[in-house]
């Protein structure tokens, strides 16, 4: 089976409970929450007239992305935004208005599309490089990382880095019965490269058939949570993520990988 090599050179994560690196590091080690809830992402680099359009989840996503962008580092050659359900809160509200035959809010409609957050990111940060928006059911996280790999492997981008941003909220009522996972991370941003740099976490991944064929995916915690824990916890060397009939196998390359 083919395996692909990639390195994660930096990360940032946000939830209303945690936003600092050391908070996430102790979370990954299994420490209990300090219960210091109520963080709000501040986005001073986003013009107020643009910022007002962002939901709390959109703000979390752009906050995480913003932590990995600065003038000292080269601009990412591409950005991948990934969310399983996107702005589902807005969509449900629009569907309710549609059912009641009420006129739809144009602003809400324009922001419910899957690339809306990436669009605001590109305006706010004057990003001219390609931006992709991905939703791939239970494969969302890995499909986005595969897209990042493909962008990095493109001859158009030698030696570049790709920014990946994941964001999701729990499904709102009346879809909440489909919430099968509990997620701690609201937004996660990663910088990825093909070559290992000092401090980067070198990974390899491969894709295989999921044992049990099309068996329903029932992970207890969200894949983004599991991936971040895998990334930050030095004791975790291997991570298997089950997608839709597929199994994504992640492995830290510092030790022997299959």
């Amino acid at each position: 089976m083919d395996s692909f090599q990639i390195a994660i050179s930096d990360w940032a994560a946000f939830s209303p409970q945690r936003m600092q690196r050391d908070q996430w590091l102790s979370w990954a080690e299994g420490s209990a929450s300090s219960e210091q809830a109520g963080y709000k992402p501040e986005l001073p680099w986003v013009n107020a007239m643009l910022r007002r359009r962002l939901s709390p989840m959109g703000r979390a996503a752009l906050w995480a992305a913003g932590q990995l962008l600065d003038e000292q580092r080269p601009e990412p050659v591409a950005t991948v935004f990934a969310s399983r359900h996107g702005e589902v809160g807005r969509t449900v509200k629009l569907m309710r208005e549609l059912a009641a035959q009420a006129p739809l809010s144009p602003a809400s409609f324009s922001l419910s599309v899957h690339n809306a957050i990436g669009g605001i990111h590109s305006i706010a940060n004057k990003v001219l490089s390609p931006i992709t928006a991905i939703s791939a059911g239970p494969d969302t996280l890995c499909a986005a990382l595969l897209e990042a790999y493909a962008q990095l492997a493109s001859p158009a981008h030698p030696g570049g880095e790709v920014l990946c941003v994941f964001y999701d909220d729990p499904l709102p009522e009346p879809l909440d019965e489909f919430n099968r996972e509990t997620a701690e991370v609201q937004a996660l941003a990663l910088r990825l490269a093909l070559t290992d740099t000092p401090g980067a976490v070198p990974l390899s991944f491969s894709l295989g058939e999921a044992p049990g064929g099309g068996a329903e995916v029932r992970d207890e915690s969200a894949q983004v949570d599991r991936f971040l824990r895998f990334l930050l916890n030095g004791n975790e060397r291997v991570l298997n993520l089950k997608g839709d009939r597929r199994l994504w196998q992640w492995c830290k390359r510092a030790r022997a990988c299959p």
Binding site: M49, P103, S105, P106, A107, S110
Partner: peptide
Amino acid sequence: LGLDSIDALELGLALQK
């Protein structure tokens, strides 16, 4: 105030409502 085209549509809806 610096409103844009989406605001114009939204404002039209608010006036209607």
